[in-house]
Write a protein that binds this DNA or RNA. Structure first.
Lengths: 184, 184
DNA sequence: GTCTATAAGCGGATAGAC
DNA sequence: GTCTATCCGCTTATAGAC
């Protein structure tokens, strides 16, 4: 066998995921990725027809990871505690895996993993507002979490850092959303 | 005069600003910019030592524009109305000038225009909470606005759009911050 | 101050041999 | 399935002529 299979979908994605955490998403190229796999760049095209497909797969994977982290944090908690815990889990993921977090937002395609992630946010918010399909509240919550994590990652908060800004915003949001319940 | 001056700092920045609005920030290159100015790329280096300096200048300009738009929206309003109006102005700027909004966040350097923009946000929030230097509240507010605008620009809200998510978040924030006043 | 010419590098992607 | 070889595009940036 002159040319046995050295790589596969999972191995490629594992290595790509490691690469973007170590070097940043911009450092991802077919050449560099192939080098890390000890393979020629052209070999990768047997598994992904182009770079975009590779990135999309990476994004789906990141969406699954983030959703699982949030679901784990939520488990067994009351609505208010679940909201705060999920928010912390979201921020922790963005901080621990900036590459995965970035690639997750690269492609706007509504793939299954991304839809499931959205449903988690929707459910989280719904338990707080009493409206299981409260799109506007979920949009606002997601915006807040995403904005904070983006600014934190890009260093735009400056040397002084965000201080207690994260918890402040989460608490403000949680209180405000709970207050918008129609029942009680 | 075989080589009269054809360009200058302002002309270059004007053209660069137009370019990033028309083609996106990624389309900005010394070559393309020079071509639009009917000049060779090397000529640009007489005015900007490198691309980063050009981008930084563009970012400062964008920060000034955004700050002015917010200040104008705030003028003569009470704290609550000013907060809502400034938020709308922020979103409007990000929508109308996505290129400027993007380049503003490219460089984390705390230049004067960026500091002034931050002070505007800090003042806006301070009038609501009663604490003139409420960093955590300003961080949270900025995060929300930035997150929403980023998600909106990248198309991640999907076909259904953000619905009334923007106003919902602004109102939730404004109420929550006002409720955190120590006086009254 | 703008020009030509060029260095030196990066990237995505493909054809065809083995 | 991986390889070699290659095409073709792009970028920032500099040296030196005019």
């Amino acid at each position: 066998m002159p040319y046995p299979a050295k790589i596969g979908l999972d191995v490629i994605l594992d290595e790509a995921a490691a690469l973007i955490e170590e070097q940043g998403l911009d450092a991802l190229s077919m050449r560099v990725l192939a080098a890390r796999l000890e393979v020629r760049a052209s070999s990768l095209y047997r598994y992904f027809s182009d770079r975009e497909q590779l990135e999309s797969a990476l994004g789906d994977r990141a969406a699954e990871e983030l959703r699982m982290a949030m679901d784990l944090a939520i488990e067994g908690k009351n609505p208010a505690d679940a909201f705060a815990a999920a928010a912390e889990a979201y921020r922790a993921f963005a901080k621990a895996k900036p590459g995965a977090y970035a690639v997750l937002h690269r492609n706007p395609a509504a793939t299954e993993p991304r839809k499931r992630l959205w449903l988690t946010v929707l459910g989280l918010v719904g338990r707080l507002t009493g409206d299981a399909d409260d799109t506007s509240a979920a949009v606002a919550t997601w915006s807040y979490l995403h904005g904070f994590c983006t600014l934190e990652a890009s260093g735009l908060f400056g040397a002084s850092g965000p201080k207690e800004g994260f918890r402040r915003g989460v608490a403000t949001f949680a209180n405000g959303l709970r207050a918008s319940r129609k029942d009680h």
